[in-house]
């Protein structure tokens, strides 16, 4: 009923050009649904379609994640000062410094905003590395099967048992702590679960009709893997990628806490570690240690929620057999 009415009114707008502008405004303000219909109708932009895609993600997680992403991409907009600018040390929160200052007089809010980029970069870069390795190993062992599969999966199982964080601690202690070694080490050591998931999915897909027909037509294995199998792995990879990012961020924060982070690149983990080792706790400065910790938690949670949401939706799709063929 409502929609019909709206369309009727819309058609009247197009006829009467005199009152057009004012009525159009009224319609836009009246109802969000009408507004979307209006957009779809007039400038060929169907928001509803995008919305349907958006629903596949967890809304809250997506919202938080966007916030942190903007923070990371455009820190200048949010940070009141430069993170290296010095003021009076150990200041309590005030209007000039919303979260006070730390032991060497840096504004904590600015540090926090600039830290977003570093923490998220470590997470995403190492997740990229591990996803790539996992994808390669899983794809090859799932597609070729046989001895190669046994070898690669055996290797995966062997690596899976080695405790990651103690190994990273040793590597971090031997190598000079820098953000790139951290990314590399985290990325190189967390691909096993991705490889397993990709393998099982590949085993499933390679029996599908389109892969068989591609093989009959004589396409090379590499081509089949790249253009037939990979696109279908994407929805398994995305949640895994998100979860890998989340766990890499936690690992980074933990390693920074041990003093194995890159001190020149102040991530949230390093802020927290400094607050612990340089007297933020003893002086009871909650504005120093709480914000970075909460930021890590929220950011990791937003990323993990997106991953979980996507995974859940995929499971539902799988039950209904949407992506079976």
């Amino acid at each position: 009923m409502m929609q019909e009415e709206a369309y009727v009114r819309e058609s009247t707008i197009q006829e009467s050009t005199i009152q057009g502008n004012t009525i159009r405004k009224n319609i836009i303000q009246e109802n969000a649904r009408q507004w979307k219909g209006f957009l779809a109708h007039n400038i060929n932009l169907d928001i509803r379609r995008y919305e349907r895609n958006l629903k596949r993600f967890n809304r809250g997680g997506l919202f938080l994640f966007t916030f942190f992403l903007i923070l990371a991409l455009l820190p200048v907009l949010f940070a009141p000062y430069s993170p290296t600018e010095r003021f009076m040390p150990y200041e309590a929160p005030s209007t000039a410094h919303l979260l006070g200052t730390n032991d060497i007089g840096n504004d904590i809010l600015s540090e926090l905003v600039y830290g977003a980029r570093i923490s998220m970069m470590v997470g995403f870069a190492s997740a990229c590395i591990s996803t790539l390795i996992g994808l390669m190993i899983g794809l090859f062992s799932g597609y070729f099967r046989g001895t190669l599969d046994e070898l690669l999966m055996g290797f995966t199982d062997v690596v899976l048992i080695i405790p990651k964080i103690p190994l990273i601690i040793i590597l971090g202690a031997f190598l000079r702590p820098s953000i790139w070694t951290l990314i590399l080490v985290l990325g190189l050591l967390s691909w096993e679960s991705i490889a397993r998931v990709v393998r099982s999915k590949t085993l499933q897909i390679r029996e599908a009709g389109y892969v068989k027909s591609a093989r009959c037509m004589g396409f090379s294995s590499v081509h089949i893997m790249a253009s037939d199998i990979f696109p279908n792995l994407f929805h398994v990879l995305l949640p895994k990628f998100m979860l890998a990012t989340a766990s890499a961020m936690i690992s980074e924060a933990s390693l920074s806490f041990l003093g194995l982070g890159d001190i020149s690149m102040k991530s949230w983990g390093i802020m927290l570690s400094f607050a612990f080792s340089r007297g933020g706790f003893i002086r009871d400065m909650w504005w120093w240690y709480l914000p970075p910790g909460i930021c890590i938690t929220l950011c990791v949670m937003s990323i993990a929620l997106i991953g979980f949401g996507f995974e859940g939706k995929e499971k539902e799709n799988g039950k209904r057999g949407v992506d079976a063929e």
Partner: peptide
């Protein structure tokens, strides 16, 4: 529990 699993363990301990 989702929140807990996303918190770095040492931050929880510190709190």
């Amino acid at each position: 529990f989702i929140t807990l699993s996303c918190t770095p363990p040492y931050f929880l301990a510190l709190l």
